[in-house]
Each structure stands twice: as structure tokens, then as C-alpha cells.
Design a protein around this nucleic acid. Structure first.
Length: 421
RNA sequence: GUGGAUGUAGCUCAGCUGGUUAGAGCGCCAGGUUGUGGCCCUGGAGGUCGCGGGUUCGAGUCCCGUCAUUCACCCCA
């Protein structure tokens, strides 16, 4: 069908756009306060970037990417997540040659081929943060703090912050072995999904929701017990900094994240009553990604925050978005001559900075007044044959229901005066 | 990719066990004052009943398929 949008996409209609602009404004505000600068990267990248960056075995790479060939035969992919692209831009533009760390943020559409449901679209928008060039645990605390602060500014304080550490390639592989050893005797009692996980991504066994599996999971060895010295200290320090920031959190060994690039810190922020997809923000540290992308070994940390999910939450919570600006003047004319005069006056009002409009459908005066009301205009400026002859206009205050006739040349000054009140 | 629910005007929905020109509210347009909004009143426009097959004398109503929406799983923001 020509008039249907593709599955999992959404039109943002004018009323909604105002809400988005509000979100974006809040994002720019907080990022400026925290010392982050905006970066914009292309919506598509070379397919290899995501294959290498996210890991061949991940769900995103395996079955969720929008891959296409351009006319030159290159394989390109609609960006399925923000971090790899930001890392690529950082390396390509030698941002590491500037003062470190580099603190970036972005608001951009992401694309994943999935079955849509509540809180999940094929094209969605993320507010993302990336800090390149330091492995200091305070940075991990800073970005978690930024996310909590951001959500708090919308009155969302019923947040669940969960953190975990995935260690480094060194300690993780040891843990992985132990995990396989632990689950192997119970394979016949695990759900089919978990059998797959056992083969493909054993860490995922830890966040299975099936009752039968949870029994085993609760007794399973924890990554935290296998952290090497460096990773263990890093995690302890992270906790210390979170406490300084007064952030309430839980340690959840079940948080493993879906992408291969994570090391050490991982975290998720949930908001209750959001349905199945209740994670509003997720992220962590990825000290190995740069190297994987062919760059120097540069540590980094970041998060993604789903704006459709945030918007959905805010609507559910009855958040008071700012009222849309109302038109100041709706110009009403009677007669052909007056229309031309009104058209001229309209242009002048706009030049003077008054949001103004008039009717173009040849409506009756009465009907124009109705339009003025529907447009929620503050004033109706009426120009008819009589006013034209006298060089005046009728200025009607639509809120108060009062009107008076004034010389046309005084209209701007009159409007200015009332603008202050 | 898997499973469930749903698909009638722009929107929210009604349409009993299949039976003549498919309805309501809201919205939209016009009129009720040949120069005036909100409330109220009147009228009007607008529907291939998602699409395609089938059963039947006859289907919006039953059956099959398909597409879409939606909820959940996998996974994720």
C-alpha cells in the first residue's frame, strides 16, 4: 500500500514534535552542564564496522541489521546502535589527538529488524553518551549519574539502577569455563532457549526468566567472584563513586548485555510499569572496542537511552509538557479589498515577530472567527470595508471577549503593549 | 523467527444467532446574525466493512489464506 508506513516505524505528527523538541532541549541542557559535546554521524556505515564492533555472534549482527548494497557494490548497514559509529568517528577524525577524555553525546535514529511491540520499533531514537580516553571508574559513575539526573529532571525517580561487572577478556574466559562446567550436568533440565545460550552465549543463561532455569541460576557462580585484581578494584571504586553521587543501585549479576564489546562495568536503568520492555537506559564500559576497530587501545564508556520509551513513560506518568505557543493574531477580513489589505497586514505582523495567520478558504466572517478560536489565537484583528474606509482595525481580545477599534498604524504598538501583560 | 488477540467513516466504537439503501458520538465543512468565536441547534461530506479466495439463494457477520496492528517470547532502547 502506497499510503502505509513500513512496519515498526512511526510518524511524529505536529503535536508530538513539540514533545520531542522538549526532550531534545533537556538533553542539550544537561549535556552542556556535564561537559559533553554533540556529534552527528551518518545513518549508515560500512557493514564490517558493526560486524567487527558488535561481534559476529550477537543477535543484532546475526539477524537484526538492515544491510544493503549501494550502486557501487559496497555493503552498507543502517546504524543499529550508536557506540560503534561514534568510536569510528572518534578514530577517523583523530579526536584522541585533542584534550582527553573526549565526551560526546548524540540523539539519533537507530534501525533494527525486529518484531515490533510495546516499547520496540524498527526505527527508534536514542540519546547516547560516550566518553573516550579514560578507564577511570568515576567516569562510569558520572554517566550513570547523568542518566539518573536526566530522568529525575522529568520527575522520574522511581528508577531501578542495576550494575554488574563483566570483567576483562582475561577474567571473563575463566568465569565462562566455570559457568559451562556448572550448567553442564543440568542441561536436560534447562529450557530450549537456555540450551541455545549454553552453546552460543553462556552468560545469557543468567538472565533467563523461565522458572525452572532460575532455580539453577540462583546457585550459579557469579562473575563478581571471578574478577581479576584490576577489575575487582575497578568495580569497588565504581561503587564508591556511585555512593558519593547518592545513587541507589543494586548489584545484579544477571546483567550481561547483548553486545560483545562490553568490559568491566555494565548497567541498566529500568522504570516500572512499562510493560515487557522496561529498560529505559543501558550501557557500560568497552575498553576493547577501539582496538577491535583497528585503532589504538583506548578505553571508553557510554550508554544509550531510548527516547520513545522515555516519551511513553512520561505520557503514562502524566508529565506536563510545555504548552505549545499559541498564535498571537488571527486576521479576519470581510470583502475582497479587505482581504488584500489583511494579507499585507499579516506580512507586517509576522515581520514584527507576532505569530499570525489568516484564512485562505474564503470563509465567511463568522466562520473565520471560529477558525481564530480553534487556532487558539490570542487576538482577532478584524479588517472589513468599514475599517478600511476609516484606516482602522478592530482588535478583539479573544480571551476576554472585548474589542475596540483602533487606528491601523497603532496596531503593532497595541499588540506590543498587551504582550507584556 | 515463535505464540495469542484484533482489523467497520479522520478518531473511538455499535452492528443480536448470516437477510433488503452499514449506524452513533467526536472531529471536519456549511448554515442558524447579508460584520464577529466559545455553549447550543440544524444540515452536509465522508465507508472497496484490511485484502484475496471459499461456503450460501444471500456474508460486515461463517471458513481458509494473506497483509497489517497489537501483546508476549527471543533480544534489546
Amino acid at each position: 500500500m502506497l499510503t502505509r508506513r513500513p512496519r515498526g516505524t512511526a510518524d511524529v505528527l505536529p503535536d508530538e514534535v513539540a514533545k520531542w523538541q522538549h526532550l531534545e532541549q533537556k538533553i542539550r541542557e544537561i549535556c552542556t552542564e556535564y561537559g559533553y559535546q554533540e556529534i552527528r554521524t551518518p545513518v549508515f556505515e560500512h557493514t564490517e564496522l558493526f560486524q567487527r564492533g558488535l561481534g559476529e555472534g550477537t543477535d543484532i549482527v546475526e539477524k537484526e541489521m538492515y544491510v544493503f548494497k549501494d550502486r557501487g557494490g559496497r555493503s552498507l548497514t543502517l546504524r543499529p546502535e550508536g557506540t560503534a559509529a561514534a568510536a569510528r568517528a572518534y578514530l577517523e577524525n583523530n579526536l584522541y589527538a585533542g584534550p582527553q577524555p573526549t565526551k560526546l553525546y548524540y540523539v539519533e535514529p537507530l534501525f533494527r529488524y525486529e518484531r515490533p511491540q510495546a516499547g520496540r520499533l524498527r526505527q527508534h531514537t536514542q540519546f547516547g553518551i560516550e566518553v573516550f580516553g579514560t578507564q577511570h571508574p568515576a567516569v562510569d559513575a558520572e554517566i550513570i549519574g547523568l542518566a539518573v539526573d536526566f530522568l529525575g529532571r522529568f520527575g522520574l525517580d522511581n528508577l531501578q539502577v542495576r550494575i554488574n561487572s563483566l570483567g576483562c577478556p582475561g577474567c571473563r574466559s575463566g568465569y565462562r569455563e566455570r559457568l559451562l562446567e556448572y550448567f553442564r550436568p543440568h542441561l536436560d533440565q534447562l529450557c530450549p532457549d537456555c540450551l541455545r545460550r549454553f552453546e552460543k552465549n553462556p552468560l545469557r543463561l543468567l538472565d533467563c526468566k523461565v522458572e525452572e532455569c532460575r532455580r539453577w541460576v540462583s546457585e550459579a557462580p557469579s562473575m563478581l567472584d571471578f574478577l581479576c585484581e584490576e577489575c575487582g578494584v575497578h568495580f569497588e571504586h565504581l561503587r564508591g563513586y556511585l555512593e558519593i553521587l547518592n545513587i541507589k543501585y543494586e548489584i545484579d549479576p544477571g546483567i550481561v548485555r547483548g553486545l560483545d564489546y562490553y568490559t568491566k562495568t555494565v548497567f541498566e536503568i529500568k522504570y516500572q510499569d512499562l510493560g515487557a520492555q522496561d529498560t529505559v537506559c543501558g550501557g557500560g564500559r568497552y575498553d576493547g572496542l577501539m582496538e577491535e576497530c583497528g585503532g589504538p587501545r583506548i578505553p571508553a564508556s557510554g550508554f544509550g537511552l531510548g527516547l520513545e520509551r522515555l516519551l511513553h513513560t512520561l505520557e503514562k506518568e502524566g508529565y506536563a509538557f510545555p504548552e505549545p505557543v499559541r498564535p498571537w493574531v488571527y486576521l479576519v477580513t470581510a470583502g475582497e479589498k479587505a482581504f488584500a489589505g489583511g494579507f499585507r497586514l499579516l506580512a507586517e505582523l509576522r515581520r514584527e515577530g507576532f505569530p499570525s495567520d489568516m484564512d485562505y478558504l474564503g470563509r465567511s466572517l463568522r466562520s473565520q472567527m471560529k477558525q481564530a478560536h480553534k487556532a487558539r489565537a490570542r487576538y482577532a484583528v478584524i479588517l472589513g470595508e468599514e475599517e478600511l474606509a476609516r484606516g482602522t482595525v478592530t482588535l478583539r481580545d479573544l480571551d476576554r471577549g472585548e474589542q475596540r477599534e483602533i487606528p491601523a498604524r497603532e496596531l503593532i504598538t497595541e499588540l506590543r503593549k498587551s504582550g507584556d501583560s
